[in-house]
Amino acid sequence: MAKVTFTLNGESITVDEPLNMRFLDILRMKLGLTGSKEGCGEGECGACAVLIDGQLVNSCLLPLGSVEGRNVMTIEGYRKTKRYKILEDAFIEEGAVQCGICTPGMVMASESLLNQNPKPSEKEIRIALAGNLCRCTGYEMIFKAVKRAAKEGEGLW
């Protein structure tokens, strides 16, 4: 066990857990934040993706020991933002959600993209989402949702 301090959804937090725990488990079990999902447990599917210092990271491959001092945003924090509302609305309007298990990760990936590139091309969207597997949608409606969000949320990113 060791104390690790980091910023979680805007607030400083200290946890006392083994450094070799997966950060995903810290979020889900210890902190009750179950919005980040486990799909594969080996960094392939992106369902567990969170933002670390504003960029997309798979929390299932992140040991707690790597989070010290970092700024973490999960879907639970992100959903309180204006940007989230734009993305949520776009995902619904475009039908980008089916089973939904990949969706929180997909939203975090979209945020990470738009934060760095507010007007992405379809090719750039595809590359940015390539680490987030979706088995339901064939991705087409997710691409449309990200495009819609970029348009509707112009100036926010």
Binding site: V57, L62, L113, G131
Partner: peptide
């Protein structure tokens, strides 16, 4: 290599 989330670490 992989996807953005892996490339970030």
């Amino acid at each position: 290599i992989a996807g953005p989330a892996i490339r970030k670490v």
